[in-house]
């Protein structure tokens, strides 16, 4: 199995387009996943009876195979990018929801009481005290969700999308390994770079955790 370097040289534009499209699908999923998880996590954290239900629901959704989610969405959104993003978003929920709830749980009660005693309103306490303190755990979830999404985008190649996953179908149909190797390497590279960037973001956003360490 040899790599045809001239193919890669001839297709740098295609590879760039696919990489951008791949990243866009994965990041959209994490973005919408956060948009859904944050309010749900706050509800699960405050309203105990709903907690088990919401976490259980996200667990059940996670057991549905990714290819099945994409396929089941076909009657709703067809062979489009929307289907890809909805499917991936569903997958990010299990990690994002669980980690956000755990993050909110990890905020010391005394800190919340102190905020209350100082007359901070509940919403303000949530935004300026609880969420920032929960950030390390939430960010751990964001990192897992991002890496997972980047790897899963290629499954959407079966429904005609899939970013770099299209290279796998292409290589498979033509019995030509180079695009497949390029696709695997670029996917891994995207995941590593995205993960490193998120670590840097977390480092910049949580200066107080550094002093302790």
């Amino acid at each position: 199995m040899t790599i045809d370097w001239s193919w890669i040289g001839d297709h740098t534009d295609d590879l760039t387009t696919l990489t951008v499209s791949h990243l866009q699908a994965a990041l959209s999923a994490v973005f919408f996943g956060l948009l859904i998880s944050l309010p749900l996590a706050v509800i699960a954290h405050r309203v105990r009876p709903l907690r088990g239900f919401l976490l259980g629901l996200s667990n059940v959704l996670f057991t549905i195979p990714s290819i099945a989610i994409f396929v089941l969405l076909l009657p709703v959104s067809g062979l489009t990018r929307t289907t890809t993003v909805i499917g991936l978003t569903v997958y990010t929920l299990v990690v994002l929801l669980r980690n956000t709830v755990e993050g909110l749980d990890s905020v010391p009660v005394k800190t919340k009481e102190a905020a209350k005693a100082m007359g901070t309103r509940p919403l303000r306490t949530l935004l300026t005290v609880e969420l920032p303190l929960a950030l390390p755990v939430i960010m751990a979830g964001v990192r897992i969700a991002t890496v997972m999404s980047i790897s899963l985008v290629s499954v959407a190649t079966y429904i005609g999308d899939g970013g770099l996953g299209q290279l796998f179908t292409d290589g498979f149909q033509r019995n030509f390994p180079t695009p497949v190797i390029a696709g695997v390497v670029l996917t891994l590279l995207l995941a590593v770079v995205a993960d490193a960037l998120l670590v840097a973001v977390q480092y910049a956003l949580t200066p107080w955790t550094r002093r302790r360490a």
């Binding site: 290629s154 770099l164 179908t169 290589g171 497949v180 696709g183």
Partner: peptide
């Protein structure tokens, strides 16, 4: 991070 579809195709080839 390893894309399963890619791995399957690669080993297949």
């Amino acid at each position: 991070a390893l894309p399963t579809v890619g791995l399957v195709v690669l080993v297949f080839l």
